Amino acid sequence: MNDETTVKTTTKSLRIVELLHERGGAGITEIADRLGLSKSTVYKHLRTLEAERYVFKGSGDVYYVGLRFLRLGVGARRQRRIYETAKPEIQRLAEESGEMANLLVEEHGRGIFLYRADSSRAVNLDTHAGREVYLHTTAMGKAILANLPEQRVSEIIDRHGLPEMTDHTITDRDVLFEDLDATAERGWAVDREERLNGLCCVATAITDPDGTPLGAISVSGPRSRLKDDKLLDELPEMIRDIQNVIELNVAYE
């Protein structure tokens, strides 16, 4: 965004909040050093954020993100109409698949997890609500990209690039577009350890009646359990059935 359209003071406050979140708390000196700000500037921002209850000061002069953000996050998630509609179906998908099921949406060219449901066998991953990922590294992200106009996909790539997360990540634009074409043709996307080593995933986009992607759902599990017969046959059929139910509910809610 052009600097002429931004308020630098607000930007600094947000960067401080993001740093506190990433570090799990930080002191004034650490924040100043990492963000290249003076200690006095950091102190003023923290005092303002503390007064508004967006951060709080713990022991040892360490500041933390406040729970007031939780209320905002919960409200933001509920504004996505797909969340309430898809939630019970994501839970059913986890139970039927015996793995982890997820719901992801696109915002500002990144993928954001809205919800996950675990089966009794699900592996412990970082896919908590609010977690951001690059769209090209996940089956859900690729399912969404496959349903966006090519120009929009190019804009996302230009903005965020195609960073490599594992040796299996697609980092070539032409190869990615070939993958997206195949995804669009068969109706589901696959991720073979493209974001995390040892993790495979099958996903499909959830679209509104006009074909606009509202998000994507997936089943994820360890490579040792998701062999080709399950990854390419059993799970796609299962996930497409859930997709159909969610899209019908979205269309007629």
Rank of each mutant, 00 (worst) to 15 (best):
I112C: 00
E96G: 01
L104N: 00
G58N: 04
D118C: 01
G75Y: 14
E89H: 09
P88D: 02
L35H: 11
L103N: 01
G60T: 08
A51H: 14
L46R: 02
K39E: 14
A51Y: 12
T85Y: 03
T85L: 15
R80W: 12
G75T: 14
G111I: 10
S38P: 02
H45V: 08
S40C: 01
S97Y: 07
E107Q: 13
R47F: 01
L49K: 06
L93K: 03
E52M: 11
I31H: 03
I31D: 03
L114V: 08
V55Y: 07
L103G: 01
R68C: 04
E106Q: 15
H45C: 13
Y115A: 05
V105E: 00
A101H: 00
G73D: 12
R110N: 07
Y64N: 11
I112H: 02
R110P: 00
R77D: 09
L37C: 08
R53V: 08
T29E: 13
K39D: 12
Y43T: 11
A117S: 15
A86C: 09
G109A: 08
E95H: 03
V42Q: 04
L67S: 12
Y43W: 10
R34N: 07
L93S: 00
E84A: 14
I90L: 03
H45D: 10
L103E: 04
Y64G: 12
K44F: 01
G58I: 05
G111W: 05
N102W: 01
Y54M: 13
G73H: 14
M100S: 03
L35G: 06
L104V: 15
I82R: 05
E52Y: 08
I82T: 02
P88N: 08
R53Y: 10
V55H: 10
Y64S: 09
L114N: 03
L104H: 06
G36H: 11
H45S: 14
R80A: 10
L93Y: 02
